[in-house]
């Protein structure tokens, strides 16, 4: 091997990757939603956890979510390289080698689970480990490339953080925590299928069997509407299990009503009109944030006022 060969090898490894590129492997935007929903789970749970331990637990959950993001990028590097939305991720951009992303994600997974076990309890740590396993193995490795129900079932991984947060404080996972799980679980299909409607070409190119390119646009639009209706109803559930007051019920009803209205516009839109789908995608993010923020406000008011 010549010096030139060594130099070429060096260029193909991570010599130009900065800490920011490794941070990007953690999918910070997804991580922020995980942290927020887990935090709401922690605040909503009955029980007392030292504020510093709660903060460290939240950090462990964030790192766990980030680790599963890195492992997902490791596994999906081939399809990330053909989709416009994911083309600039650190692996397809040639900044971080796949093997390093795998090692980074694996190491952080173990670290996050161990840290959560130390800071809170084994139930929360076990749930976090299961979340990472479900996202990486069940969703990324198995479902994503094999069925249009990929994001429906895989959505369970994204829905678990509030249960993990609840368990971290209460050392239990009662019905109320699963109500929060259900809201995110039912939110996932209309959110991702709205995206898939106007990014259909990307998914087709990558060979991912998303609902629009398997069952067609119309079937997807119908399912988006159906899931939005069920989601709007499930969004009211925290009131009926006694977690929150009528203030939340009104807020959730208004938000859910708007979600259903936007999904109705998606259903009624012409085949080439993706405007309503883009609007629904944007609003769905706000919906989830607002519903969880309303629960958070309710619980904080109940605790401090």
């Amino acid at each position: 091997m010549t010096n030139a060969d060594h130099s070429a090898l060096a260029k193909s490894s991570s010599q130009l990757a900065g800490p920011g590129d490794y941070f990007a492997l953690l999918k910070p935007r997804v991580m922020s939603l995980v942290v927020f929903t887990a935090f709401v789970g922690m605040v909503a749970a009955p029980g007392v956890l030292h504020p510093a331990l709660a903060l460290i637990s939240l950090l462990a959950i964030a790192v766990g979510a980030g680790a599963s993001g890195a492992l997902n990028m490791w596994w999906d590097a081939d399809i990330d390289a053909v989709m416009s939305r994911t083309l600039k991720r650190p692996i397809p951009a040639g900044l971080v080698p796949r093997s390093e992303a795998a090692a980074f994600g694996g190491f952080l997974s173990a670290l996050s689970v161990a840290l959560l076990a130390l800071a809170s309890n084994y139930l929360a740590a076990g749930l976090l480990a299961f979340t990472i396993f479900f996202y990486v193995v069940i969703y990324s490795m198995w479902l994503k490339r094999s069925t249009p129900q990929n994001i429906v079932i895989g959505g369970a991984a994204g829905a678990l953080p509030p249960v993990v947060g609840w368990a971290a404080v209460a050392n239990a996972a009662p019905l109320e925590s699963w109500v929060l799980f259900t809201i995110i679980f039912l939110w996932t299909p209309p959110h991702f299928w709205a995206l898939a409607l106007f990014k259909r070409g990307d998914y087709e190119l990558a060979g991912i069997p998303m609902m629009p390119n398997v069952k067609g646009d119309l079937s997807t639009r119908r399912q988006v509407f159906a899931y939005s209706v069920v989601l709007a109803l499930a969004g009211l559930a925290p009131y009926f299990v006694g977690m929150v007051s009528a203030f939340y019920l009104i807020a959730a009803a208004l938000l859910g009503g708007w979600m259903v209205w936007l999904s109705w516009l998606v259903l009624k839109a012409s085949a080439e009109d993706f405007g309503p789908a883009k609007k629904l995608f944007g609003f769905s993010i706000f919906y989830l944030f607002a519903v969880f923020a309303a629960i958070l406000v309710e619980r904080l008011v109940a605790i401090y006022v």
Binding site: A10, Q15, P19
Partner: peptide
């Protein structure tokens, strides 16, 4: 590996 100054700077940051 004959790192360039830019690569050295990134390694330091890492």
């Amino acid at each position: 590996y004959g790192l360039t100054p830019e690569e050295m700077a990134m390694r330091k940051k890492r």
